[in-house]
């Protein structure tokens, strides 16, 4: 397991107006592994991953203090372009959200076109590779011109993953990517997450304890905006150090 550090937060605080959502989070995110963020609703886990690619600041009155490092560089430094950060740190959301007016092909190519890519064989190859990496190619290769919304929910989520992969990110953030999917589609996404970790650093927010246990190598438990416990997933789910973690993962509160 490659355990070099890809990202790190240092004394990270986040606010929505006067309300503080994250408190002094210092957490190392290791490269090429899956890190799961768990915790009850309102604990700050979605806010946390949104600070990792500067999406948090898109909310009016939202702000942060502290540092978020990507390969050792503070992504909130003045000279850093947030668009570039979002390209290096992609995001997949809870509900599949393909662009409704675009074809399957154009959905995958959208990010590249925005960055100036022209139609042609090179673009075709990236679209195909991205769909293959998202394990969707075989299912849609003959329907690339059909609307992105014409496929099933699970396929749409994999399309969104292909769209995120097309711009060649280094880190993929996933915010409850399976919560709107049935068990079969969920199983496919979970398998895909494990495959993605071979080439990417993956951070997944999930409400599903068993999903965190199945797909992640490391798990962080958040509660009331604080990081309560972080460790190897197997150890955390077998013998958590914190009583709060124990109570949450065994369903005694939350």
């Amino acid at each position: 397991m490659d355990t070099t550090e890809k990202m790190k937060t240092e004394n990270l605080n986040a606010w929505f107006g006067p309300k503080q959502a994250l408190k002094e989070i210092t957490l190392s995110i290791k490269a090429n592994v899956v890190t799961a963020i768990i915790g009850p609703s309102g604990c700050g886990k979605s806010t946390f991953i949104r600070t990792l690619n500067r999406m948090h600041e898109l909310v009016p009155e939202a702000r942060i203090s502290g540092q978020v490092l990507l390969d050792g560089q503070n992504i909130y430094a003045d000279e850093v372009d947030p668009v570039q950060i979002r390209r290096r740190v992609g995001m997949v959301f809870q509900k599949p959200n393909p662009f409704p007016t675009m074809s399957i092909y154009d959905n995958v190519a959208a990010g590249l076109k925005l960055a100036g890519a022209k139609k042609g064989q090179a673009l075709d190859e990236i679209v195909q590779k991205s769909l293959q990496q998202a394990t969707l190619w075989d299912e849609v290769k003959d329907d690339l011109r059909k609307p992105g919304t014409s496929i099933s929910g699970g396929q749409q989520q994999r399309l969104c993953i292909a769209r995120a992969l097309a711009v060649n990110p280094e880190v993929i953030l996933m915010d409850e990517p399976c919560s709107a999917l049935d068990p079969i589609a969920t199983a496919k996404i979970e398998t895909l997450i494990r495959q993605l970790a071979e080439n990417y650093t993956v951070v997944i927010v999930t409400h599903n304890m068993q999903q965190a246990a199945r797909v992640s190598d490391f798990t962080a438990f958040f509660y009331l905006g604080k990081l309560i416990e972080y460790g190897e997933t197997n150890a955390l789910f077998e013998n958590p150090k914190s009583e709060l973690t124990e109570k949450y993962i065994t369903g005694k509160f939350g």
């Binding site: 068993q210 246990a213 789910f237 013998n239 124990e246 993962i249 065994t250």
Partner: peptide, 9 residues
Amino acid sequence: YQPVASDLR
């Protein structure tokens, strides 16, 4: 129930 932690132990 897919128990974990003390339940699983």
